[in-house]
Write a protein that binds this DNA or RNA. Structure first.
Lengths: 225, 225
DNA sequence: GTTTTTTTGTGATGTAAATCACATTAATTT
DNA sequence: AAATTAATGTGATTTACATCACAAAAAAAC
């Protein structure tokens, strides 16, 4: 589907720095594609020929590790998916899969590079995002390797509530196995800890819907447990 | 110590893209500082006011985690230390400590931003490095969380030999505790595994000097163990 | 609406590695 | 050189999870 980028309601912070002319030039060089739950958006090991940008929906970024899959993170709209690959390596180092119905805008790499070349404000914003995400990934790695499962699951639930869904009741469209891969735990352990949280009145579960009842406990567990 | 950047023998890949004029302008806006083993170069939690660039020596980047310190990585010369902080956050998210006598060039942040604003080739190179390091840190995180200690230690030894020292005999100026923090293991476990590697004739240890005798085994352990 | 597949729940068992507790050696300091 | 302090080596014990092995429930396919 062809775009009119100037009128796009989902512009990235970086794209908002583009001039009307630059936006006009961008439009014929990007396409929006819809994905259904479970669809692969980017596949690890394949060539990266476009910059991908998430307009709507929810996706997971995941890497095939030596033993299991690791879900690196869940990404919400208005974020680029895989910028580092675009510049750092021609081959995708990770996969991206839709976990809800999603819309992704694929931008031609040459056009993207031109924008970087021409517009320092755009570049600056992109660099800012790159840096932030790198810092975040350092922090996440420390948490992943040092906290134990209860703490990591508490983190994830808080992240969903505060950052992704911005609501204390939400529906996570991923399996417990996915959650396990997100916190480096087995699906059995996720099941047990979630049951424990329910029993302790910290959360309430109805199928895939989660309601956070006691955020303070969750924050405590995130820190101490 | 004031610099003459034009004549500097340790220019980064990015700085090599600068024009003579830009280099001349850079010189009065950066200082080179020497550090001894154990000296703190950047301290987590403090304000970042400069871009740091490693000219000589060897340093470790480390983060205070919820339970222990995590050594994120060992960095060798001609690399920026903490670029992400410079843009992503004003407060240093990690510490950098010299593990050998080192020389670090501190570049004024405003000057650095000017160079980014003015010289797209410079910017491009910086972005490339940012992206590569982000991809690398994803991969490292997967390894850290999935491999077991023998595999992770094998990785580290191979990294030292192949990337850092570029020799099969080298002296690692860090304690086993540091190595533990680098592979997320206790110092006792590091001691045990290193002893095991020695016994099996894979490496030879004389104090802090390590000689790799059987790289093939090490590569195998890195993959399978 | 039945069947098949996927996802979840829960106990029993196994295990890698942490922790604890010292002994020993090496490196600094005085 | 002697005295501290820091770094290592090694066994015994504990532990947080993984893994295994099913059963039950839910979702998807037919």
């Amino acid at each position: 589907m062809k775009n009119n980028c100037s009128l796009c309601d989902y512009k990235s912070a970086a794209a908002q720095k583009l001039t009307p002319d630059e936006l006009k030039n961008l439009a014929p060089n990007c396409v929006t594609v819809k994905f259904k739950k479970g669809d692969t958006i980017i596949r690890q090991g394949t060539y990266s020929t476009n910059v991908a940008y998430l307009k709507k929906g929810l996706v997971k970024i995941h890497i095939d590790g030596p033993y299991h899959v690791q879900v690196v993170r869940i990404v919400k709209p208005r974020n680029y998916l895989g910028l580092p690959t675009t510049f750092g390596d021609k081959i995708n180092q990770y996969s991206v899969t839709a976990i809800d119905e999603s819309e992704v805008c694929f931008i031609d790499i040459t056009t993207f590079r031109q924008m970087l070349q021409m517009n320092p404000d755009f570049t600056n914003q992109i660099m800012l995002e790159l840096c932030k995400s790198e810092l975040e990934s350092y922090q996440k790695c420390v948490n992943r390797t040092q906290k134990q499962i209860r703490g990591k699951l508490a983190d994830v639930l808080l992240d969903f509530a505060d950052n992704i869904f911005k609501a204390d009741t939400f529906t996570i469209n991923v399996t417990q196995e996915d959650l396990g891969n997100l916190v480096d735990a087995s699906r059995e352990s996720v099941s047990r800890v979630m049951a424990e949280f329910s029993k302790d009145g910290i959360i309430e579960m109805k199928g895939k819907q989660v309601k956070i009842l006691d955020k303070t406990s969750l924050q405590l567990i995130s820190k101490k447990g």
